[in-house]
Amino acid sequence: MEDNEKGPQQHAESVPEVGEDAMTSLGPSFPAPAMTEEERQELQEELVKVEEEIQTLSNVLAAKEKLLADIKRKLGITPLNELKQNITKTWQDVTTSTAYRRTSETLSQAGLKATAAFTNVGSAISRKFEDVRNAPTFKSFEEKVETLKTKMTAPASADNPGDQDNGSSTSEPLVNQPDASPTQEMH
């Protein structure tokens, strides 16, 4: 049971902190090879020296980045301009790529084929409607509708007042004769 209790503690100790060297962080987990005190002292001095060099290089890098930002500011290069240039360059790279050209050509051909297909379908539907309209059954139906229309409009256009009293449902007699309106008849 003690091993389980030590496990999490060892794990917490094995995570290196900022500035801590990997050998020191792994020391408790892995036993260090047998070395003399003198070798250990040399390694510690080398460790300090390397850490100082890293810090110096970080400071130099920060100074160079500041100088770069000052030069860009003096030249009028803003982060937005850089972003626009990067986007433009990326778009040019994409449009000149073989995959983009092939896809573009394929989509263009598909668009042309779709347009042609829609035109053909539209023509076919128009022809089918024309065929139906020219069919004898439709012509017979059309003649019957025309005959019915003629019969229904003939009494409405007649000036014979006797026809109006026969129960025709046209609105013209009602408008011309205010006494015959449905609301007045109900009262």
Score class of each variant (00 low, 15 high):
A62D: 04
L26R: 05
K6S: 07
E146Q: 08
E13V: 08
T147W: 03
Q10A: 03
T98F: 06
M152D: 02
Q184P: 02
Q184E: 06
S140W: 05
N59D: 11
P182K: 12
E142P: 00
D165K: 09
M23C: 05
V175P: 02
H187Y: 11
A22S: 04
E52G: 05
R127W: 14
E82H: 03
T88H: 08
Q184R: 14
L107V: 12
A12P: 04
R101P: 00
P178E: 04
K66V: 13
E105I: 03
V132P: 02
S108H: 03
D131R: 15
S171I: 15
P28K: 08
H11R: 06
W91H: 09
S171F: 11
G162A: 05
K113T: 08
V18M: 06
G111C: 08
V94K: 12
D93K: 11
V18A: 07
D163C: 04
D70V: 07
I71C: 07
I54D: 04
M35P: 01
D179A: 14
E143M: 04
L47Y: 02
A154I: 01
S168F: 01
E2W: 04
K66T: 15
F30L: 11
V94P: 09
V121G: 02
K64Y: 02
P28H: 07
A116I: 06
Q10G: 13
A116G: 10
K64F: 05
E38K: 06
S25F: 10
T78V: 09
G76C: 05
E105H: 00
E5H: 00
V50M: 11
L148C: 07
Q41C: 04
S58H: 10
A124W: 04
A116N: 13
Q9M: 08
Q85N: 13
V132H: 02
L174E: 14
N166I: 03
V145S: 00
N4R: 03
E52V: 06
L68I: 05
A62F: 00
E52H: 02
D70L: 09
Q164E: 12
G122V: 09
R102V: 14
S58D: 06
P31I: 01
K49H: 03
L57C: 04
K128R: 13
M23I: 12
Y100S: 06
V175Q: 14
S29F: 10
E45L: 09
A32W: 00
L148T: 02
I77R: 08
G19K: 09
L112V: 01
L112D: 13
E2A: 15
E172H: 08
K144G: 01
P155G: 03
T103V: 00
E105G: 01
V175S: 12
L26W: 12
V50E: 08
